[in-house]
Design a protein around this nucleic acid. Structure first.
Length: 427
RNA sequence: GUGGGUGUAGCUCAACGGUUAGAGCACUGGGUUGUGGCCCCAGAGGCUGUGGGUUCGAGUCCCAUCACUCACCCCA
C-alpha cells in the first residue's frame, strides 16, 4: 500500500487486544501499591547525555540503539531506551530522596530502541518499571524479587524461571575481570569473532554468547561468584536466604550478565522458553553507584523492568480474556420509533448502562443479528405499534423471552435487571 | 547492521507464464408484513505492497524498493 503506515517496529494496539493491556496494568498498579510504590511519570525525551552516562557509553543500547537526534536548538536528545535513568534524574532534580515516605516508584510507558524488529522485540515497546532507593539491605533485594514473582503469579503466568546472580561490586568485579581476561586470552583462537572483540571491550558479555565453541571454552572459565569479596558474598547469601524463606524459587545462574553497566551485586531475569529468541520478559538488579554518578547523593538503588509486549504474548498463549460487559441493544422500526429509541438509548447510558443501537434504519432481522453479535443481554424493541400505544418490548436474549412494558418503565426495569453488575467487566 | 522466508478481498489462504484472479470466514440483503444464533439463496467487496524490466501475454519470471516475519546480534 502506498499509504502512510506506522513506523517500522511501532505497533498500534487495537481495541480487540486492549483488554490484555488493561488487565496487566491494573494488576501491576494493585501489586506495586500494596508494596508501597508510588507512580511516577517522566518525559519520553531526555538529554542524550543522561542515557550515555547511566547506561554506559560502550553498551549496545547507547552505541547503536538509541533514537537520538539534535533538536531545533541543536541540543542532543534521545527517546528513552529504558526508564531507570529518567527516574534517577527526577529523584535528584526534585530531591525526592529527602522524603522518607516516597522512595519507591513505579512507571508504565513506552521505551524506544532502534533494533531490527522480531518476535517480542519492537522499536517502541512498553515497560512496567520499578525502582526503590535508599536501602542497601538484602531484605529489599528479596522483597523486590518477591514482588515481581507475585505480580506474575497474580496474572496467572506459568512456565517462567527466575535467574539470579551477583555481579559483585566495582572493586571485586574489576579483579575478576582481569582473571577472566587472561583466561580468555589463553583460549583466544577458539572464540568466535564477536567474542574475540568482546574479550577486550566487555569480557563478561562472552558468557551471553550462544556459539557452542565459546560455551565449551567457558566451561572451565573462572566464575565470578568465586571471586567476589566477602561483603558481596554475604549480601548475596542473605538475598538467597530471604527468597527461600519467601518460598520464591530461583536458579542461580553465574553466567547471567546484564547489558547495562550500572548493575552491581544482585541481578535477576525472568526467562521463558515460549517466546523464541526473546526469552527475557523482565529483568533488573541493584545499582548502588548510579545516583551518585548522575550527580546526586550517594544512595543505593534497585529496580527491574518488565516487557509488556512479551508478557502479553505469553499470557495470550495460555489464557483468554472475555469481552466486556452487559449490553442492551435498542431496535427500532420506523422514523418516529427510531427517534424515540435514540432518546431512550441516551437515557440508558446516562444511568450507566452499556447500550447501543443500529443507527441506519435496517430491517428488524438485521438489528437482531447485530444485537446478537454484540452479545447483548436485552433488546428493547420499539415498533410503530408499540410506539402508538406508548409501549416497548424487552427481549431477554439468553432466555429468549419477551414482554411488553410501557415506555416510561423501560429504564427503571433495565436498571433493576442489570443494575447489580453494570460496572463489572469480566477481564 | 547481516541473513532466510512471506506480501493476492476486512481475515485465513488458492490460482501450470495464457479468457473476466477464486474459496472459506466476516459483511449486506432476502428466504419469515416486525424478531438473533443453525440452514438455504443472492450481493457487495481487488491498481495481486510499490516501481521498473523480460515477454505476443506477468499474480506467476528478473531487479529494485517498502513492509511483515523468523533468526543472528542485543535485550524487555
Amino acid at each position: 500500500m502506498g499509504l502512510i503506515q506506522a513506523i517500522r517496529g511501532m505497533n498500534d494496539i487495537l481495541p480487540n487486544e486492549i483488554a490484555w493491556w488493561q488487565r496487566v496494568e491494573q494488576t501491576a498498579r494493585m501489586v506495586m501499591e500494596d508494596f508501597g510504590y508510588y507512580e511516577i511519570r517522566t518525559p519520553v525525551l531526555e538529554k542524550l547525555e543522561l542515557f550515555a552516562r547511566s547506561i554506559g557509553e560502550s553498551t549496545d543500547i547507547v552505541e547503536k540503539e538509541m533514537y537520538a537526534f539534535a533538536d531545533r536548538k541543536g541540543d542532543l536528545v534521545s527517546l528513552r531506551p529504558e526508564a531507570t535513568a529518567s527516574i534517577v534524574r527526577a529523584l535528584i532534580q526534585h530531591n525526592l530522596h529527602a522524603d522518607p515516605l516516597v522512595r519507591k516508584f513505579y512507571a508504565i510507558g513506552p521505551m524506544f530502541r532502534h533494533e531490527r524488529p522480531q518476535k517480542g522485540r519492537y522499536r517502541q515497546f512498553h515497560q512496567i518499571d520499578v525502582e526503590a532507593f535508599g536501602v542497601d539491605d538484602p531484605m529489599l533485594d528479596a522483597e523486590v524479587i518477591y514482588m515481581l514473582r507475585l505480580f506474575l503469579e497474580r496474572l496467572g503466568l506459568v512456565g517462567v524461571v527466575l535467574h539470579l546472580n551477583s555481579l559483585g561490586c566495582p572493586s571485586c568485579r574489576s579483579s575478576y575481570r582481569i582473571l577472566l581476561q587472561s583466561y580468555l586470552a589463553d583460549h583466544a583462537e577458539t572464540l568466535c569473532p564477536d567474542c574475540e572483540r568482546r574479550r577486550h571491550t566487555n569480557p563478561l558479555r562472552v558468557f551471553d554468547c550462544k556459539v557452542e565453541r565459546c560455551q565449551s571454552v567457558l566451561g572451565d572459565a573462572p566464575i565470578l561468584g568465586d571471586s567476589i569479596c566477602e561483603e558481596c558474598a554475604s549480601h548475596f547469601a542473605r538475598v538467597k536466604s530471604y527468597l527461600s524463606q519467601l518460598q520464591t524459587p530461583f536458579l542461580v545462574n553465574p553466567r547471567m550478565v546484564r547489558g547495562l553497566d550500572y548493575y552491581m551485586r544482585t541481578t535477576f531475569e525472568v526467562i521463558t522458553d515460549q517466546l523464541g529468541a526473546q526469552n527475557a520478559i523482565g529483568g533488573g538488579g541493584r545499582y548502588n553507584g548510579l545516583v551518585k554518578d548522575l550527580g546526586g547523593p550517594d544512595i543505593p538503588g534497585i529496580g527491574f523492568a518488565i516487557g509488556m509486549e512479551r508478557l502479553i504474548l505469553l499470557l495470550q498463549q495460555n489464557q483468554q480474556v472475555g469481552t466486556p460487559s452487559p449490553r442492551i441493544f435498542v431496535a427500532a422500526l420506523g422514523e418516529a420509533s427510531r427517534t424515540r429509541g435514540f432518546l431512550l438509548l441516551q437515557e440508558l447510558r446516562k444511568e450507566g448502562l452499556a447500550a447501543d443501537m443500529e443507527y441506519e434504519g435496517r430491517s428488524l432481522k438485521s438489528q437482531m443479528r447485530r444485537a446478537d453479535k454484540l452479545a447483548a443481554q436485552h433488546v428493547v424493541i420499539i415498533g410503530e405499534n408499540e410506539l402508538s400505544r406508548g409501549e416497548a418490548q424487552i427481549r431477554d436474549m439468553i432466555n429468549k423471552t419477551q414482554n411488553v412494558l410501557s415506555l416510561d418503565r423501560i429504564v427503571p426495569t433495565l436498571l433493576e435487571m442489570c443494575g447489580k453488575d453494570r460496572k463489572s467487566s469480566n477481564g
